[in-house]
Simulated assay, not measured.
Amino acid sequence: MTKTLLITGASSGIGAATARAAAEAGWNVALLARSQDKLDALVEEIGEGAMAIACDVTDRDAVMGAVSQAVERFGGLDAVFANAGKGVDTPGVEDGDPAEWHDMIHLNVMAVLYTAHAALPELRKRKGHFVVTGSKAGRDHLKGSIYGATKWFVHGFAGNLAEEMREWGGRCTVISPGMVDTPFFDEAKPGKLQAEDVAAAVVFALSQRKTSCVREIHLMPND
C-alpha cells in the first residue's frame, strides 16, 4: 500500500522540494498552500500521486477540510509535514510591529497546532508520523527575535507531541535547519543549505524503522 504524506507550505521552497523527494521515494503527497496556481503546477510535475488543496492553514476549519479531502482521495494518512511558516520585516521587540507578530504567530504556532489537531486522529489509525519545521533560531537565543520565539515553541511542542504519540506507536520529528536558500529571504543564499537538503532530512526521518523515532534533525550549512 502506498503511503500518503500531507505537506503544508507546499507551493515553494522546502515544502515543494519535500513533495518531489517524497514522491520519488514512493509516497502519495497532498499539497497544501494558499497559491492554487503554484500547487497545480507542482501536481502536474509530480503526477498522479499528488493532489493540490488550496488552504489557509491559519483557518482551523479549512485545515480540517483539507485533511478530509486527502483521506478521501488516498484512503488514509501516514504522515504530515507541518512546514508553513514566515518571519517578520521589522525585527526586535521595542521597534517591532505587533500586527506582523500577530500574523506570524498564527502561522508559525497556531497553524502547526491546527494541523496536528486535525491530522492526529488519522495518523493514529496508521501509527503515523508528524514532522514539523523548526529552526536553528528555535535552539539559540537571538537578540529580540520574536520569530525565534515562535520556533522555540515549535521545538518544545514537537518534543511534547512525540511523547503523546509514542503512547500509540506514532512518531514526531522536528527538522531544525540553519539558513536555507529559499524564498523566505529576499536575496538568494546559494552557499547555504538548499531546500533539497531539508527535504532529504524529512524523507530520512520518515524512512526509519518502526522501532526508532528520530526526534530531531539539526542541519547547518557547510559554508
Rank of each mutant, 00 (worst) to 15 (best):
T211G: 06
S11T: 15
A33V: 12
F74G: 03
S11P: 14
V198A: 01
F184E: 09
I53A: 10
G13Y: 06
T2G: 05
M110L: 15
A66M: 07
N28V: 06
H155Y: 06
K192I: 01
L32T: 09
A17N: 11
K127T: 14
G138C: 09
A205D: 07
A54T: 10
R60H: 02
I175F: 00
L206Y: 10
R139S: 05
F130D: 08
C55I: 07
F81H: 10
D103Q: 13
D181H: 05
L120I: 14
G13C: 10
V88F: 07
E163N: 15
S11Y: 13
G85V: 10
L113Y: 11
D103N: 12
D140F: 12
G169Q: 08
D78M: 02
P91K: 07
G134C: 08
H102E: 15
V198M: 00
A30E: 02
V174K: 02
D61N: 10
T90L: 14
H141T: 15
D40C: 07
L39S: 09
I14H: 03
T8D: 04
G47S: 07
A62Y: 01
R60G: 00
L42C: 08
E94W: 00
I217P: 02
L113D: 05
G144A: 15
W152C: 12
M165K: 03
L32I: 12
L107I: 14
A118V: 04
V71C: 03
F185H: 12
G170Y: 01
A19R: 13
D197M: 08
A195H: 08
P190S: 11
K189A: 13
L32C: 08
T182H: 01
L161I: 10
G169N: 08
T133L: 09
I105V: 15
I14C: 04
A19W: 01
E122L: 10
A66T: 07
G26R: 13
V29F: 04
E164Q: 15
G85F: 03
A188D: 05
A70Y: 04
R209C: 14
R126Q: 14
K189S: 11
L5V: 12
M165C: 08
I7W: 05
K3Y: 03
F184I: 14
V80R: 02
G128I: 09
T8K: 05
H129F: 13
E164K: 12
